[in-house]
Design a protein around this nucleic acid. Structure first.
Lengths: 208, 208
DNA sequence: TTCAATATAGCATGAATATGCGATGGCTGT
DNA sequence: ACAGCCATCGCATATTCATGCTATATTGAA
């Protein structure tokens, strides 16, 4: 029986990425593990890697970028890749966004080791795995406040980090026009006329 | 020659804490490594441990608590303990506050593995170690002398509330030109190119 | 008292944003 | 099959922002 033996990690914190490498090798019986700190490095690797089965552990908050669009790009390059979010994020809106991108797993960095192993088993049998902590957060999430779509929230993250339309477009692999559309729809929903107002709104609603 | 062989880790993310355990054992030649996720668990351990030499790796952002007060408590319980901040924080103000608590080391989670090893060597010879990334952030923070004048801060408040130049000018009874001047001086000091970056900076520095 | 910092104000110009008004496909649920 | 939302992309235009350069008055410290 064939098992997944190759995994990659994307985490902007080098020490964390490297430590996770050791963890996956030692505790999850994965033979080859490589880690990357920037989205582009991972994407470049994936292009060379081809379309074999591969486990990808993705963080959500990355240095100057966001895991969501990386996920889209990964799946486009290698449809056979199994992508698992492994993140410290806890905001319901953010978790809901991740889920809508249909990852193969959703793991908290605060979860037990056993949950990673359970996740790997589930993913191997083509099931989507969500750790207990996130399951709880998502179930108790009231839907009333969240009028923002995942893509909108992602774009919002970039703006909150001071990125312009062009920079955000580049990071998300989108057309600048699309970024503008997302931004304007958010501003319409939130009743804002400027980016500054939008950021104030986002802070008040814990979206960033 | 006696060497430090016992280390403990405090990180609220279990997976990260456990991974760091492996890292310290495998790459830093530390025999005994234990990790904790809550400050109280660590403190309890320290009371039982006594006053022998011990390495402590502390995160800054913890679940419902903060590494600073933990540091104080650790030093009170065991003056021989060497405490190293290992954190993902990057805001100059936050780093500066950590330094004021006089830890034995200041390491970024984004640093190279070699810097952890260098830190251990430095700490062993009673030196305080700061990783390059943090050294840079702290030094450029001083040069930037980001002391905002009262008028500048006042203007900043209006911008953080989503006011435009014209609106701010109206509220402050100033010429729009003057408002622009205040804004641009702040952005020059903080090294920002846009309002969004300015607001991010202001949040990181607790200016608003 | 000289000097540095602050506060005030202006002109000019290119870059970015805000907004009106579209359009096409892909899903989801009924 | 169809409505409704989501994501994607486009054009055109008015407004605002970002920034180079300049300038005066006040104030407090050296």
């Amino acid at each position: 029986m064939k098992t997944s033996r190759h995994a990659v990690i994307l985490d902007d914190q080098k020490i964390v990425a490297f430590s996770l490498e050791l963890l996956l090798k030692r505790e999850c019986r994965i033979d080859i593990v490589q880690s990357f700190n920037r989205g582009n490095d991972l994407i470049q690797f994936l292009r060379a890697f081809g379309k074999e089965e591969l486990l990808v552990f993705l963080d959500y908050y990355l240095q100057d970028e966001n895991g969501l669009s990386i996920l889209t790009e990964i799946k486009r390059i290698n449809g056979a890749a199994k992508v698992i979010f492994l993140t410290g994020a806890t905001a319901p809106a953010v978790l809901a966004s991740m889920l809508q991108y249909r990852p193969d797993g959703l793991l908290s960095k605060s979860c037990e080791l056993g949950e990673i192993q359970a996740c790997l088993a589930a993913v191997k049998s083509r099931q989507t795995f969500i750790c207990r902590e996130f399951e709880y957060i998502l179930s108790s999430n009231d839907k009333r406040a969240e009028t923002f779509t995942p893509r909108e929230i992602e774009v919002l993250q970039y703006f909150s980090n001071g990125y312009s339309v062009a920079e955000t477009a580049s990071k998300t692999f989108l057309s600048p026009h699309t970024v503008v559309t997302h931004r304007r729809k958010m501003m319409a929903k939130a009743g804002c006329q400027t980016i500054a107002q939008m950021l104030k709104y986002a802070h008040e609603h814990n979206l960033i």
